[in-house]
Amino acid sequence: MSQPEFKIVPKPEMSAEDRAINRLADAVHRLNEAVQRAVEAGISIELVRVSRFHDGSGNWGDQMVPLVRAPARASEG
C-alpha cells in the first residue's frame, strides 16, 4: 500500500476587509454555539448592545454583552 501524498495548498489572497469579516463570522458562529449550549443547560441569554465603536472615518460596530438569567429553581414544599 502506498503512502498518501500531502501537498501544501496556498491560502487564497484575501484583503484585510475579507480577513476581518471572516474572523468576525467565525467568532459569531462560536458565540451562537455557546448560546445554544447555555440554553440547553437551562439558562436564558439575551445579547444587548452596550456601546458602539467608531473608527473616526465613518465606520462603526456594535459591542455586545450577554444578560444571563440563571435557571429557575423548583419550588420546595
Rank of each mutant, 00 (worst) to 15 (best):
M1L: 13
M1N: 15
M1C: 14
S2M: 06
Q3S: 08
Q3H: 05
Q3E: 13
Q3M: 13
Q3A: 09
P4Y: 03
P4D: 01
P4M: 01
E5C: 02
E5V: 11
E5M: 08
F6V: 14
F6S: 04
F6H: 06
I8H: 05
V9Y: 02
V9R: 03
P10C: 01
P10H: 03
P10L: 01
K11I: 00
M14C: 03
M14N: 06
S15W: 03
S15I: 00
S15R: 02
A16L: 06
A16G: 14
E17Y: 12
D18P: 03
A20G: 09
A20Q: 10
I21H: 07
R23F: 07
R23S: 13
L24F: 13
A25C: 05
D26K: 07
D26C: 03
D26G: 11
D26V: 09
A27E: 14
A27M: 05
A27H: 00
V28Q: 14
V28R: 13
H29Q: 12
H29E: 07
R30S: 07
R30T: 07
R30G: 03
L31V: 06
L31K: 10
N32V: 04
N32C: 01
N32E: 09
E33N: 11
A34P: 00
Q36T: 09
A38S: 15
A38N: 07
A41H: 04
G42K: 10
G42F: 02
G42I: 02
I43P: 01
I43V: 08
S44R: 11
E46F: 03
E46D: 08
V48F: 00
R49Q: 14
R49D: 04
R49H: 00
S51R: 07
S51N: 12
S51Y: 07
R52M: 09
F53N: 12
H54E: 14
D55I: 15
D55C: 13
G56W: 11
G56K: 15
G56H: 13
G58T: 07
G58Q: 01
G58W: 02
D62R: 11
D62M: 09
Q63K: 15
Q63E: 12
M64V: 12
V65S: 12
P66T: 00
P66K: 01
L67G: 04
L67S: 10
V68M: 01
V68Y: 02
R69K: 15
R69H: 13
A70H: 09
A70K: 04
P71E: 07
A72Y: 05
A72H: 10
R73W: 00
R73Y: 02
A74W: 10
A74N: 11
S75F: 08
S75Q: 14
E76F: 05
G77E: 10
G77N: 12
G77S: 10
G77P: 11
G77V: 04
